[in-house]
Computed example of a mutant assay.
Amino acid sequence: MSYFTKKEQILIIIIIIIIFIISGFNFINKNFLSTKNDHNENTDGVEELFMKLEEEAETNEDEQYIMVHVSGQVYNPGIVELKLGSRVIDAINLAGGLKKDADSDKINLARKLSDEEKIHIPKIGEEEISFEDSNLKQGNNEGKININTCTKEELMSLPGIGEVLAGRILEYREQTPFKTIEDIMNVSGIGNKKFESIKELIIVK
C-alpha cells in the first residue's frame, strides 16, 4: 500500500482549499448578481411610480379656474369657482339653479365664461338693460353693489357675507350711511381680511 509523501499531502490540501475558495466565490457572485437585478427591478418600479405622479401633477397644474359672480333669479347668488372653459349653465347650477320666475330666454346658457365675469339672471318681465346703459347707470363700476341702497340678498351674494352679517350692514346704514367703502369695516364681524375679499365688488353712492 503506497502512501502520499508529506509534500504531496500538502499539495492536495492546497488544491482542495483553492477549489473551495473558487466555488465559494462563484456562489457569492451569483447571489450578488441576483440581488442586484432584483434591486434594479424595484428601482425601475419606483421610478415609474414617480413619473406617473409627476404627470398627474402637471395635469393638475394645467387645470385653470375662474371666478364668476352670479346674481338675480338663482337660489344661491354669489361668487362661484369653475374650470376654465365652463359655460353659463355651469355657473347657474353651482349657484343653486334657476328660480321659477327666471327668464332664461334672455341669457345664453351655452356661452363660455371668462374670469371676473358677472352673470345676471333677469326675472320674467324685468326690463333688459344693455351693456352700454348699464355702464352709464353704474358709473362704469361694472355691476358693483352699492352698500347704501342694495338689498339684503345682494349683500349675501358677496363672498363671506351671510344672513347675519347682511342684517348688521343694513342696521348700521340705517343709523349711519356709508361715506366710503372702508366704513363697512365699522360693522361688527367685518375685519381687514373680509374687507379685502369684497372691496372690489362694492361701491358707495
Rank of each mutant, 00 (worst) to 15 (best):
E116W: 03
N93H: 08
D103N: 13
A91F: 06
K83F: 11
A110C: 00
L94R: 11
H39K: 12
M67Q: 07
K30P: 00
S71R: 13
H120I: 13
S86Y: 04
D103A: 12
I79Q: 04
E56K: 13
S23K: 07
N108E: 05
G85D: 06
A57T: 11
N93I: 11
G45L: 15
E55N: 14
L113R: 02
Q73V: 02
D62H: 06
N26R: 10
N31C: 05
E117C: 04
D103P: 05
E117N: 03
I28E: 01
V80H: 01
E58S: 11
L33M: 03
G72R: 01
H69D: 07
M51I: 15
V74H: 02
M67G: 01
Q64I: 15
K106M: 12
N108F: 08
G72E: 02
R87S: 09
G78D: 01
I28P: 00
I92F: 04
L113N: 02
I22K: 00
S114A: 13
N60T: 09
E61S: 11
I66V: 05
G97Q: 06
N76P: 00
D62R: 10
A110N: 15
D44T: 13
I28N: 03
I107C: 02
L98V: 08
G85K: 02
T59S: 09
G45K: 14
L113W: 02
N42I: 14
N76Y: 08
D90V: 04
F25Q: 07
T59N: 09
K118R: 14
S23M: 09
V68S: 01
V74A: 04
F25T: 15
K106N: 14
L49C: 04
N29W: 07
F25Y: 15
S71L: 09
D101I: 07
L109N: 03
L84Q: 12
E56S: 12
K83C: 05
I89L: 05
E58I: 11
R111E: 09
M51C: 06
K100Y: 09
F20W: 09
G78V: 04
K118E: 07
T35P: 00
N76H: 14
N42F: 15
S23W: 10
P77T: 07
K106G: 08
K100P: 01
N26M: 11
A102G: 02
Y65C: 03
M51D: 14
L84N: 08
N26H: 10
K100E: 12
A57L: 11
K118H: 08
R111D: 07
H69S: 12
G96H: 06
D105G: 08
K118C: 05
K112A: 08
N42W: 05
A91V: 09
I79G: 01
L33H: 03
I119S: 01
N31Q: 14
Q73R: 08
N93R: 11
S86M: 05
E56T: 11
Q64F: 12
L84I: 10
I66K: 02
N60Y: 10
E54A: 15
T59W: 00
S71W: 00
K30M: 08
E58H: 07
D101M: 05
K83Y: 13
I66G: 02
K100S: 14
A57V: 11
G97T: 11
N42D: 13
K83V: 13
F50T: 14
